[in-house]
Write a protein that binds this DNA or RNA. Structure first.
Lengths: 247, 247
DNA sequence: TTATGACCAGATAAGCAAATTCAGTCATCA
DNA sequence: TGATGACTGAATTTGCTTATCTGGTCATAA
């Protein structure tokens, strides 16, 4: 009994130690990827920065590509959780503009995810071509569509425009504010927060319904629906990950 | 008297023949540039397609770079004139959303200008790095700012936002709608006209002033100011061109 | 005088062998 | 049993030579 408990305890401790190490390796990978891009970040570099031997990395992931995929998944998980947290703690988290605001802030704070949404080849290099990206944006758009339909049905945004077009407009506006700083001269540099303020204002006005503001209860509902649907997305993804890991 | 007139007539005819040929050469350059991009479009190709000898091209422009700069200038002139024509014939030509609508339509119809605004390296290649682009966008932005200030002062758009931010927002939105189609999956493909309809709607809502619609006279004024300020821009540019040509 | 295209030199690409890099493995160690 | 890093072969890069291309000129022809 005692020994069994001890063994289990040991296993758990070991597991968490493993995970901690995996995290450290991913941290190193993230740092190097941001500095040098995918193509120029080698396993040796990562191992050195993480303070482990190269072989150790292969105790965690089968290939280099897998490692970076894991990194991006972790980044995505963090982004989504950050997003959920922001939504939950903002009274406007149940409005379209609130949602846009927090999704943009979360995206801006995560350079790797931003690179992925914007298909930044410099950073993602070869990884983009094979892995994630083909599914990534369409998936993002699908979620956009579900979101729009959810807020429309509750009268939180106007519904006198085709839903698909509304998604198109919303994505055009957010992408626009994500890329515009590359084009503007120096007199027009704004902080992330200022930019987000501007998108929020724009989204608020473009999608505001003709009637009165949504009441608190509706906003709560929308926020909750969104948060739990994101829980779902994460759960499904993690399930797929596990199945892939076991197979 | 008669012979003098004849000579003059001859000179004019000759001049216009020259210009016609220059135009033909630029047409060829435009076609090839769109197909192969700047880097892979050779003077020989252009000469062959235009049906002239290579040396003839150097009777018109000192260098290859000059030729493409002339092409872009012609394209810009055409865009501006197209834009002016559209503005003049639209009753909403004196509103910010009308202006946006027509500037976007004009831009979309001119792939080379679109490439320039978006800094499309694939198309513009080396030309971009040396020539136009450094001045191009800032100049565009400066015009944006002048435009915003002009419409603001006449109450055509709201003035409860900092003018610089308004420019930033307007440019973010237009750029967004110009690039978004690269990101959207196939179910979300819209024609230029449909896209412009959406931008117009967005701009209308984001920048609408709180008060009543501007009256016809104000719109006329704004449209006229804009058109003549564009005349000015063109005049200045052409003057610079001539000075460069003579020096 | 105007237009041409053969011609030139410098730049760019193609070809190729040697050197280096790097993802992934595995015998060895603790 | 978990971690290591020397090792391997495939892939990429480097260095260099040769071949091709192409912007720009200019003697010649119309």
């Amino acid at each position: 009994m005692a020994s069994q408990h001890k063994a289990e305890h040991g296993r758990i401790e070991e597991r968490s130690k493993r995970e901690e190490r995996a995290d450290r390796i991913l941290d190193a990978a993230a740092e190097l990827m941001l500095r040098w891009g995918y193509n120029k970040t080698t396993i040796d570099d990562i191992a050195r920065l993480a303070g482990v031997a190269k072989g150790t990395i292969y105790l965690h992931w089968k290939t280099r590509e897998d490692l970076f995929t894991a990194l991006m998944r972790r980044e995505y998980n963090r982004l989504v959780k950050d997003f959920q947290r922001r939504i939950a703690s903002d009274p406007d988290g149940g409005t379209l503009y609130g949602i846009t605001k927090h999704s943009m802030l979360a995206t801006m704070k995560s350079p790797l995810m931003k690179a992925m949404f914007l298909k930044d080849t410099d950073l993602l290099g070869e990884w983009m071509r094979k892995e994630y990206t083909s599914e990534s944006f369409p998936q993002q758009v699908a979620q956009s569509l579900a979101l729009i339909e959810s807020v429309r049905s509750r009268g939180v945004v106007r519904d006198d425009i085709d839903a698909h077009r509304q998604v198109y407009m919303l994505d055009a506006i957010t992408i626009g504010f994500l890329v515009i700083d590359q084009y503007m001269p120096d007199e027009f540099k704004y902080s992330d927060e200022e930019v987000v303020e501007m998108v929020t204002e724009a989204v608020k006005r473009v999608f505001a319904p003709p009637g009165p503001q949504p009441d608190e209860k509706t906003k709560q509902e929308v926020a909750n629906t969104l948060i739990s649907s994101l829980d779902n997305v994460l759960a499904i993804r993690n399930k797929i990950d596990q199945e892939e890991a076991t197979s």
